[in-house]
């Protein structure tokens, strides 16, 4: 029964990882920017929700605030950091270091303003009840899964049915051709950042309700998103989401065999193995760059 409990726990964590990872994968796939500050969007959204909640505002206002903050941060990164860098040179390492610097700054600012250590939101949604003998589930489990499913359905509808979504996929495949057809790659890359960053907000809010947030959580989230994007295959949202789910489950189920300290190491072992044996991931196409 412990196994079932861990599996369900893993699915809940994995659904949240999948959401964040899909956001990262969308940005990376469409713009080729290694948005290392994606985890920072997550942190900011989570804390924005926390502040609203502690201020006594209703949950939906907090949720909107979280989404807005994440989107604004993503857009600000695109306009103020990535675009100026890409104007003079596009080396990925320059982009990576700049994003890393921002992540460090925000992490410490959040620590100074909101206090260090774990903070969480108390709701009745995270109260677990026994659904099967020795298996406990909280309502938030169903919420996490429903949110993940609905958002994925919405995202794939957006990417396949709307003009903007199709253009985003075109941007991922051939930016030059896209410009030749008169579409603005600048506007589209802002769209990618807005949508991708917004995907981190629901996951952040649900995390605030379950395990709680701390100022360094963005780091962990970022590493998981990156791992999921690579394991899933760069350019494939489906892959990233599936890999995020898988990493969450692996992290949780591993607890049956090893101590908690090893949980994170398990994810990175999976990532490391993939990079060495199958760098193109589940659904990726092998490419030389």
């Amino acid at each position: 029964m412990l196994f079932l409990q861990l599996l369900l726990q893993g699915i809940q964590t994995g659904a949240l990882y999948a959401l964040t990872a899909a956001g990262f994968a969308l940005i990376f796939g469409a713009t080729r920017i290694f948005h290392f500050a994606h985890g920072t969007s997550f942190t900011l959204a989570g804390y924005a929700f926390l502040f609203c909640w502690n201020g006594g505002l209703p949950g939906w206002i907090g949720t909107l605030a979280g989404i807005a903050v994440a989107m604004l941060f993503g857009l600000a990164m695109e306009r103020l950091v990535y675009r100026p860098i890409q104007r003079h040179e596009g080396s990925f390492f320059t982009v990576f270091v700049a994003a890393f610097g921002v992540a460090v700054v925000v992490q410490n600012l959040v620590g100074m303003v909101a206090g260090r250590g774990f903070a969480s939101v108390d709701t009745r949604l995270s109260l677990a009840t026994e659904v099967l003998p020795d298996v406990f589930l909280a309502p938030i489990f169903w919420i996490a899964i429903a949110v993940a499913v609905v958002l994925f359905a919405a995202l794939s509808a957006f990417l396949t049915r709307t003009h903007a979504g199709v253009a985003l996929r075109a941007l991922a495949q051939n930016p030059d051709l896209l410009r030749a057809y008169g579409l603005s790659s600048n506007r589209l890359s802002m769209l990618a950042f807005a949508v991708g960053s917004a995907m981190a907000a629901p996951a952040a809010i649900l995390t605030a309700m379950t395990t709680g947030l701390n100022e360094a959580i963005g780091h962990h989230v970022m590493l998981i998103s990156m791992a999921a994007t690579i394991v899933g295959g760069v350019g494939s949202l489906r892959g990233a989401a599936l890999a995020g789910l898988m990493l969450g489950v692996a992290e949780s189920v591993a607890l049956q065999f090893v101590d908690t300290q090893w949980a994170e190491a398990v994810s990175f072992l999976v990532l490391f193995a993939f990079i060495i044996f199958r760098p193109s991931g589940f659904f990726g196409v092998a490419q030389t760059r």
Binding site: F96, L223, A227, I230, F268, F272, I276
Partner: peptide, 14 residues
């Protein structure tokens, strides 16, 4: 590139 950074991050965490 990005992949190697990811691999080295993985190694660091492990």
């Amino acid at each position: 590139g990005e992949y190697f950074v990811a691999a080295s991050l993985g190694l660091q965490m492990m």
